[in-house]
Design a protein around this nucleic acid. Structure first.
Lengths: 122, 122
DNA sequence: CTCTTGTTTCGAAGTTTGTCGATGTCCCGT
DNA sequence: ACGGGACATCGACAAACTTCGAAACAAGAG
């Protein structure tokens, strides 16, 4: 049973995050941009997910296996479910190395969100 | 500049969300902080809400009345509902002047979210 | 006071989301 | 080849969310 077939998850490609959106204070968001950015914010809108994300982001080397971060108070399938959502939103990438699966932060996505918010400090 | 000093910021706005959270990449979020920040991200996790917020933020003088921004494709009660959610999340403040209600951005909330994300660009 | 305009609140659909236990898949020791 | 550990997927269910029309509330004009 080969796993050559690619599961199509056309929600958000990792590329979609990079060239996105002027600062939130400079101009009203278009309907298209607001939908795209809202999907990213939604990925971080759950406490468990946000905590998982921060654990990956702050982990040594910028990557962590699930076993290192799964102690967040919910069951293991729930952790897997949340990590999948973060992956689909383009915020995390995963890679299997041997027994473990390692997650790391997709830098472009963070930069997009930060860029939208940082111009508001003036 | 690795100072982990206390986040006692100037008390301009007694709104919530002011004293919050180290950068997402520096340390894992506590359960309490993740809940608080997730609530803010959730407020921006809806396309309509994000568009309303950007309209207020980018409006002249940093404030806008509902009549100026309510053309986002949903009914007017729905607009009011979303504005209430943004208000409850500490992202917007409202003030009635005569017939109209004016909304403006709570700067501390934006700064908190931006601060969490900006340290990831290195 | 009454009428009109701007905004919020009130139920009530219909849909989405977070969570779990059970089960399946992949990989490493033995 | 076998057993066991690490993650992912499945099916189900309660809670939360978005949205609407109808109605209530607030303020100004006539």
């Amino acid at each position: 049973m080969s796993n050559l077939e690619v599961v199509n998850l056309p929600l958000l490609e990792p590329e979609a995050a990079a060239p996105c959106c002027p600062p939130l204070t400079s101009a009203p968001l278009s309907e298209e941009d607001s939908a795209r950015m809202a999907a990213m914010f939604k990925a971080l809108s759950d406490p468990v997910r946000l905590r998982l994300f921060s654990r990956v982001a702050s982990h040594e080397g910028g990557e962590a296996c699930v076993c290192d971060i799964q102690d967040v108070g919910v069951s293991q399938p729930t952790v897997s479910h949340h990590l999948k959502k973060l992956r689909e939103a383009g915020l995390l990438t995963s890679e299997r190395r041997g027994t473990w699966v390692y997650y790391r932060v997709a830098p472009s996505a963070l930069a997009a969100m930060a860029g939208m918010l940082t111009a508001a400090t003036d």
